[in-house]
Structure formats: C-alpha cells, structure tokens
C-alpha cells in the first residue's frame, strides 16, 4: 500500500472541510478524484503536501508505511511525494533550474546519496524539458514568472519529470488549458506512468480523463468520497452531473 488515507477530518479556520475521507492507492495506480467546487478536492491535495493552516482533527494518512502528517512539506517531497499546483506560484528572482537543483540535491542528501554533478544534472533537465516540449530558455527564467497559464502547468509536469516522484498529486492540472496545451501536459504525465509511480488526479471535469486514463475514479462531495468506480464512472458523471450522484448518496 503506497497511500492509505483513513477517515480523515480536517478544518481550516474552524470550518470542517474534510469529513471522514478514506482513500487507498497502490503502487502504479492512477486515481482520479472528481467533485463539485467546494467539495474539498484541493484541501485534500494541500493537506497531503503539508500546507500549513489546516488542522487535521481525526483520521490518519500513511504513506509508504510512515505517518505522512508527521513530515514537513520538504520531508514529504524527499520521500517521493509531488504536488502539481492548481495555481503554480510565480517566484521572481528564483531560477527554475536553481530550484530543481536545490530540490534534487535535498532529496539526494535525505537519501544519504552524494549531490548530483553539474553535467548529469543539466543533461537530465534538458532531456525532461524536451519531453515536455519546453523551450530551453524556460530553464533559466524565474520560476513561473510571466508564464502563461499553459506554460505554468507544463512547468509543473516538467518539475515532476525531473523529481521523479513515487506519488504525484496533480491538482486541477487541466484547469485553464486549451486543448493543445492539455494534450501536451497529459502526454507528459502518460510518459511518466510506471509500475512504481502512482498518480492522484484531482479534477472538476471529465475532459482530462480522456487523455489520462485512470484506474479508479472517486467522487468527492461534502468532504467525503461518496462513490468509487472505474473510468466509466467519469463518463456517467459527465452525462448525469454531480447532483444525481449526490442525491443518491444522500438518499
């Protein structure tokens, strides 16, 4: 078991957002969590990545046999967790490549391995940029500064490719993308699918799942997973809408 979320309750500013969420992801699986706005999708992603400000009031999250909630955000990343942001942050003055090098070296250090040498690093970075059809000039630019919406999302998946996570949580990676950008991003994710890498896709629309085929689809509403199924569930949702499922769950 790679990730095991059990009966997770979490609140922010006293308001409960997650109300008993459970989810299990095995190595190599791709899961999609779908749900209406405000259902708690992004909160789940933020809590798993270690964002401050959320209070976990009950439940547990185990990742690779450890209590994930005990780890600092950097510790989670070093343990192989990656969060693709819904709104990637612009950080003027911090160079893209510099960030990746610091991130990779921190992971190497945490694993008791030596720092990656400059030549191998640049080779890796250039190879992954080519994979994401990214212009080399992006590498030396400040993190996301002045990037278009599509470029930002592409940069997220590029970072994922370089950091090679064990579990990638992609939060609304499809939002704000036109169809061409979506194809590039989805293709980037597909190329990274491996038996020892799991992906948790968080999305509002079924559209992304046309391009990245999930093994499982879950519907999140009101802070709980109310329904799980295979990829056909996404199509059913697209046809019937969330309301029908939520009514069924309530009834």
């Amino acid at each position: 078991m790679l990730l095991e979320v059990k009966d997770l309750h979490a609140s922010i500013g006293g308001k409960e957002i997650l109300k008993g969420l459970s989810l299990t992801i095995k190595a190599g699986e791709v899961h999609a969590i779908m749900g209406p706005n405000g259902s708690g999708k992004s909160t789940l992603a933020q809590i798993l990545a270690g964002r401050e400000g959320y209070e976990v009031t009950a439940g547990s999250v185990r990742y690779n046999g450890v209590n994930l909630l005990d780890l600092e955000p950097e510790g989670r990343a070093q343990a192989g967790l990656f969060l693709g942001f819904q709104y990637p942050v612009e950080i003027p003055g911090v160079n893209n490549v510099y960030l990746l090098k610091a991130a990779l070296n921190a992971r190497q250090k945490a694993a008791g391995k030596p720092e990656i040498d400059a030549v191998s690093f640049m080779r890796l970075v250039k190879e992954k940029a080519a994979l994401m059809e990214m212009d080399q000039s992006f590498l030396s630019r400040s993190v996301n500064e002045g990037f278009s919406g599509g470029e930002k999302k592409r940069n997220e998946i590029f970072q994922m490719a370089v950091l090679e996570p064990t579990l990638a949580i992609l939060d609304e990676t499809d939002s704000g993308l036109d169809i061409d950008a979506l194809k590039v991003v989805a293709n980037g994710v597909n190329l990274q699918r491996r038996d020892d890498r799991s992906v948790l896709l968080i999305t509002h629309y079924q559209r992304l799942l046309d391009y990245i085929e999930p093994d499982y689809v879950h519907v999140l509403a009101n802070g709980k997973i109310i329904h799980s199924g295979d990829k056909s569930l996404a199509l059913q949702l697209e046809a019937e809408g969330y309301d029908a499922l939520m009514a069924k769950a309530a009834g």
Binding site: G50, A77, F85, V89, V94, V143
Partner: peptide, 18 residues
Amino acid sequence: SLFYLRSRGVPQQIARNM
C-alpha cells in the same frame, strides 16, 4: 512561495534564503 519551494523538497531554511 515558501510552501511551493518546500513542496519541491527544498528544506525550509534554504527555501527562505532563496
């Protein structure tokens, strides 16, 4: 920004310095 850098694995102190 700080969370973004840390979520990539950069230790807090290095992220702050960056």
